[in-house]
Design a protein around this nucleic acid. Structure first.
Lengths: 355, 355
DNA sequence: CTGAAAGCGCTTACAG
DNA sequence: CTGAAAGCGCTTACAG
């Protein structure tokens, strides 16, 4: 295994042709005779030729790598996003370099800087809430929410909220508790706005913000849901499956039945949502499409530079033909018709487990 | 923003010195007079000089990038791993390129191939279970389990299991249900072995494998835990917090109290474990240390090549001074003394919520 | 302590 | 259709 990696010139020597011809044949660009192309291809394969990315990058000025900046890699949504972006990028011939903002705004800037230093051709960023990325020295695809200025593409969070609200309204819920994390996220305000619209003018809603509750009660503190249910709430619509899970277990731990006494909904279809009891009704993003659109927009900007405006660098947020991707309502067992169970009928029979 | 990026020669021209001197000054390698170094540094900073990774890579033969291959990016443990590796790599001056095996063994090989093509200097791999990576053309750090041949570093899963088992034994549990995912994972067999050892010879154990249950009952099917509890099980020790969550909600959904009637434990301290009710007792890996050790071993192999054996490439699994990193037992509310609650005392009082 | 020169592997006009 | 040559930006012996 100590043979040096074959390079273009090895193939050229082996065949007695020039490196230029080999390069042209392999890239399919230059006009090389079909027979020669065939021989060159065969020899390259035989020798196990792998082009040097460094050589190519130096010559073309492009690295073939995209950066991915996330607000917090620990976010449970991260796997979905990373997987989708990686897949879309690989399909377009790009690699993906990860960076972590660790939730802090200064780190986000640093992360972008490190990616630039590494020579990425473009960046996909899910911005920390409240941040606005304007400049970065390379094209940027922003995935946040349609109401964020500079947003490239994202799920249609408002419409997702509306449809979830409508689902609950149709089940007869008129007294609904909304739970979000923080008030400063565009994604969350879109979802809340949509939920209220979907629930309609006849529903009473109250909104709880976890960030505030925890500021007082500490991380992981109880949300006080039992009282809310006693107070007449028949459905709890959360803005994340993590919150939904928290609500579900808090209720169950107190002997309150979901969905018989109270329905619970989430957002994002996170990993556990389909395996907990009862499975969570949620609203799923189409991360595959979002990633595809973001990466395509980025690649267009990157490769368009070369062809189009003679070296003029597109830098900063790019736009995409479609900026709102529909969400998909996933109805599972955690939602049911309002008023089926009362607070007294606390226990579910074992039979229900079998369904 | 249309100024071309300054390169080494720009600095050299500005100062009227040679590019060699600038390079030496900036890298701190050559013997350049302190004053000149200072002036060069200042000019570089002023011009906003960012070295070209392509140029450097082409010349040095190293890309400064590590690849990260995961069995399945959708794995809930992925965020922890990716974050830790990214952090350790950044500390060592390396970037991290992600690749996804999507759970398939052929894809794992392809993923490695793509990373090699991208010119990574080394690869961190969490192998798909049952796989053994021997060759890849570059140094590899394998993170799996101490009982996997070729393993570079990992958590001490067996000892983690033993301590969890001991914790349950100390709480008086003698009839314990173990739940794993699949029988072919070294990590899982280590954990199971440790659990049994920790529970001691006086405990009766039975092991359930989710993969088998789901082969019959479908994904997300009930685990039949109520019957097990009726049969006398007082504790359920799972090999993952995802399974623990599944068990917890299945029990709570059936009106069985955790931990009064039955204790539940997990592994890995996943994101939700500290916010569900009751919070999950779990065993946490020290991903920071694991990542640090893996990256250091890789970097030693990569950079040692240059200094040491004159171009001889280390290729394949590298070894590390420490290969087993201790796990940390996190005791929370999901475990309690055996026999406190009976199956009849199903409901927890609201007061418990406040704790 | 400083500089001139070679060369890493590739692609791209350009000439033939 | 094919080839000779330049050059992307850097680092590294080597010479002075």
């Amino acid at each position: 295994m100590n043979r040096p990696k074959p390079k273009l010139s090895r193939i050229a020597e082996t065949l007695g042709v020039s490196v230029a011809t080999v390069s042209n044949a392999l890239s399919g660009k230059g006009r090389v005779s079909p027979e020669l192309v065939e021989r060159i291809r065969a020899t390259a394969a035989e020798l196990g030729y792998v082009p040097s990315v460094a050589g190519r990058a130096l010559r073309t000025g492009r690295s073939g790598v995209l950066g991915l900046v996330l607000p917090n890699i620990a976010n449970p949504l991260f796997p979905q996003i990373a997987q989708a972006i990686e897949h879309a990028a690989a399909g377009a011939g790009y690699g993906v370099l990860i960076a972590n903002s660790r939730g802090e705004i200064s780190t986000q800037t640093e992360a972008i800087g490190r990616l630039i230093e590494r020579g990425v051709d473009g960046i996909v960023i899910v911005p920390r809430r409240g941040t606005r990325i304007v400049e970065a020295g390379c094209p940027i695809a922003v995935i946040d929410s349609p109401s964020t200025p500079g947003n490239t593409v994202s799920a249609d969070h408002w419409e997702g909220g509306r449809r979830m609200g409508a689902h609950l309204r149709e089940l007869g819920h008129r007294n609904v508790l909304l739970i979000g994390n923080n008030t400063t996220s565009n994604v969350q305000s879109d979802r809340i706005g949509g939920l209220k619209a979907g629930l309609g003018p006849n529903a009473a809603t109250e909104t709880l913000w976890i960030e505030r509750l925890e500021a007082a009660g500490g991380a992981g503190c109880p949300l006080g849901l039992v009282e809310k249910v006693r107070g007449g709430v028949t459905a709890i619509a959360t803005l994340s499956d993590l919150t939904a899970l928290r609500a579900l277990t808090e209720l169950q731990g107190a002997g309150i039945s979901v969905p018989d006494t109270v329905s619970v909904t989430g957002f994002d279809d996170l990993i556990w949502s389909s395996v907990v009891t009862p499975r969570l009704t949620t609203m799923r993003m189409d991360m595959g499409s979002i990633a595809e659109i973001a990466v395509t927009a980025l690649v267009d900007a990157i490769e368009g530079d070369r062809r189009g405006n003679g070296g003029e660098e597109t830098s900063g947020p790019v736009s995409a033909p479609i900026s709102k991707v529909p969400m998909e309502l996933v109805i599972r067992q955690s939602t049911g018709v309002a008023g089926v169970g009362s607070l007294k009928a606390k226990n579910r029979t074992e039979g229900e487990l079998a369904s």
